[in-house]
Design a binder for these strands. Sequence first.
DNA 1: ACTGGTTCCTGCGAGC
DNA 2: TGCTCGCAGGAACCAG
Length: 271
Amino acid sequence: MPELPEVETTRRALEPHLVGRRIVRVQHDDPRLYQGTPLLEGQTVRAVDRRGKYLIIRAGEHLDAVVHLKMTGGFRLPPEGDVFAEAPRFERLRVVTDGGELSFTDMRRFGVWLVRQRGDYRGIDTLERMGPEPLSDDFDPGAFALAMARVPKVKPALLSQHHVAGLGNIYVDEALWLAGIHPEAGRLTREQSLRLHTAIRDVLGRAVEAGGSTLSDATYRRPDGEPGGFKLHHRVYDREGEPCERCASPVEKVRLAGRGTHFCPSCQPRG
DNA sequence: ACTGGTTCCTGCGAGC
DNA sequence: TGCTCGCAGGAACCAG
């Protein structure tokens, strides 16, 4: 699923194909999901930014296209040349620029586009309340520790995007394993929080460098159609019953806040 | 201000 | 072989 590393990989791939290009036409099949996208026509793309798991296409002087890939959204570039010979599978929206075509695909139609006045994210609560970017200096260990000292359960707190941006189910499980913290642990000690801070930066940083990860069961692809440049070596995610790489105890899977949650019961103690 | 459950959607793999 | 049925999960939304 696209989490921060996959969205960042997407952003980097789109940038050279969009920045400086004028959007000629936007075609799509669902005005409810792709709200306001006709407003982009005639606008020149100034930048492609990312905030957490949101992509933000800066169009013209005043407009932002806020895009969330959710679970199966993604972009495709034509495999050869500037235009598509045939529509990619699950294409939902196509952007035609003065320099070529770009396709937005989304098997399950969870992904959304919203066109807003620049910086006006009212009503997009998660984006408005987004925590610091984990790979920037804004992600302050002390402030993070203070926040983690108050949360009742660490995993839902990390998924909320409120304390740190960009983590999803997979990287949360991996970061908690790295830090040796139980997903249901609450009110973390300062030491636990600092370990978690390091683990989050470590796992996300490595995944970004690798070009994101594509799981066996996931549909994420880079815009050039290649899978994530590196299959992230998952320590717990999707490894139920397999031995923990630290202590050889079988990895457990439970449901927590409605999500499949993987952890080592032995080296991720609740305390 | 929190938590937990439901919903959106559709392909896929397990099981019969 | 062919069918049904859960499962996958980001975040909005709602009820408690």
